[in-house]
């Protein structure tokens, strides 16, 4: 299967790889996994007092499409409010990266990682 140029770019030069301290109150952590392929994705958002995402980091174990999907969303969420970030759809990710149908689940994983991170943040600040 051939990867698109955008997937290869994100795979070879992943943006924002790393981690924040998950106990920091301004950090939201989303952990998700895809049973079908065993991919595991950790997405962390640094959220400012105004509720805007200031920074994002990820660590993903998985195929090129999973890494590219998580790398892409760390770029997309920066500067967005939580609500805006929550509205990112897997179809947007799949389209941007030109993912083939068998790799759609990678974009679903990335969308769910954003949702899981936001849930974590809300739980922390409930």
């Amino acid at each position: 299967m051939a990867y698109s140029e955008k997937v290869i770019d994100h795979y070879e030069n992943p943006r924002n790889v790393g981690a924040f301290d998950k106990n920091d109150p301004s950090i939201a952590t989303g952990m998700v996994g895809a049973p079908a392929c065993g991919d595991v994705m950790k997405l962390q958002l640094k959220i400012g007092e105004n509720g805007v995402i200031e920074d994002a980091k990820f660590k993903t174990y998985g195929c090129g499409s999973a890494i590219a999907s998580s790398s892409l969303i760390t770029e997309w969420v920066k500067g967005k409010t939580l609500d805006e970030a929550a509205s990112i759809k897997n179809t947007d990710i799949a389209q941007e990266l030109a993912l083939p149908p068998v790799k759609i689940h990678c974009s679903i994983l990335a969308e769910d990682a954003i949702k899981a991170a936001i849930e974590d943040y809300k739980k922390k600040h409930a």
């Binding site: 998700v32 895809a34 049973p35 769910d112």
Partner: peptide
């Protein structure tokens, strides 16, 4: 299935 596991 393409669902996601969320068990932190």
């Amino acid at each position: 299935e393409q669902r996601t596991l969320r068990d932190p």
